[in-house]
């Protein structure tokens, strides 16, 4: 893995900076800029930051948005040459729950257990309480995948763990195996809108639709990555708690700020949940130190018994 990285970077530069979604930290801004029709033929240049932090001028004509290129994309293989990671900065989380709201809405979650949870945590009596959002950890050694008897849940080369809801037999062994309790089961016929129910199921977009008798969970939003966008929770968070990115590019972004993953984890003493279990999660946490907002602010939104709002709106 370590050896591969420099090669990847060289390739990245030599190819005239084809950029993938997360590779380019400010990728989203760029994509938007590029999609403006007027900018097409002029020899205007764009300023880009390479992965080692230097700024380069690149002619726009040299840019190709290869996040749109789906050639050879296999839903069980994932995005080639990527390894998606997330960083959750607990110091910034004040339980605003916009992430959960957005996740519930965009994945049409109708059950009673959200895929994205914000836990009220306190590690010991003397220690301060804090808010801890959890998504699927997309473990590199996923216990859920190991126990699945039919290969319905699978690990892709880009690090994402997904579920094929047309194959799942509903034995729930994966739920028993997951130490993070992030998997949810469709105990009844999901009350999703008709147009969602009629969609052809696609592991790339969990919840589109949810299927009775099968397991669902956070999918790291490959459907957003396809569009060159960040996962719903990342963009929804008003406090920039969630950072998403590619481990090979060593970059993560919350849409507004971009960091070198390795430095961020080093400087802020990042860690992973239950590291001792050896599941090797793809989600890193930054400790809740020097918090932006006091813990108590989040209590207003805290609901011990609800994570999916039951509203019949929209």
């Amino acid at each position: 893995m370590k050896k591969e990285d420099p090669n990847k970077r060289r390739k990245f530069l030599s190819k005239g900076l084809q950029f993938g979604l997360v590779a380019t930290a400010g990728g989203i801004a760029l994509t938007k800029y590029l999609s403006e029709p007027a900018a097409a033929e002029s020899e205007d240049t764009v300023e880009l930051m390479t992965t080692d932090g230097t700024l380069v001028q690149v002619p726009k004509s040299e840019l190709h948005d290869h996040s749109q290129a789906k050639d050879g994309y296999n839903v069980r293989e994932g995005f080639p040459g990527k390894k998606f990671v997330m960083v959750i900065d607990l110091a910034r989380c004040k339980n605003a729950l916009k992430c959960q709201e957005s996740c519930n809405k965009n994945h049409y979650i109708t059950g009673e257990n959200a895929w994205l949870k914000v836990y009220k945590m306190q590690d010991s009596e003397a220690a301060a309480p804090y808010w801890m959002p959890t998504t699927c950890m997309h473990c590199d050694k996923p216990p859920c995948v190991t126990v699945c008897p039919v290969d319905a849940t699978f690990k892709r080369k880009d690090g994402i763990v997904l579920i094929d809801n047309e194959r799942c037999i509903g034995c729930r062994f994966c739920m028993a195996a997951c130490p993070y309790s992030i998997r949810v089961f469709n105990w009844n016929e999901p009350e999703q809108p008709e147009e969602i129910k009629n969609m052809p199921p696609n592991p790339d977009y969990a919840g589109m639709p949810s299927i009775k008798g099968t397991v669902d969970k956070c999918d790291f939003c490959p459907h957003m990555i396809h569009q060159g966008e960040l996962p719903h929770c990342v963009t929804a968070c008003p406090n920039g708690v969630f950072f998403f990115g590619d481990k090979y590019e060593d970059t993560v972004t919350n849409g507004a700020e971009t960091f070198r993953l390795s430095e961020l984890l080093k400087n802020k003493a990042g860690y992973r949940l239950m590291e001792s279990l050896g599941t090797e999660p793809s989600v890193y946490y930054l400790p809740p130190v020097n918090r932006v907002e006091p813990f108590e602010q989040g209590l207003e939104f805290y609901d011990e018994f609800n994570s999916v709002k039951k509203t019949k709106e929209s």
Binding site: T146, C148, P149, V150, R167, I169, C171, F185, G213
Partner: peptide, 19 residues
């Protein structure tokens, strides 16, 4: 106990030996 007993045959056609 299975959520999808209609897919019982998946245990045979998609069997994975490590489970």
């Amino acid at each position: 106990d299975m959520g999808r007993p209609d897919r019982l045959y998946h245990l045979f056609i998609n069997a994975r030996l490590q489970s």
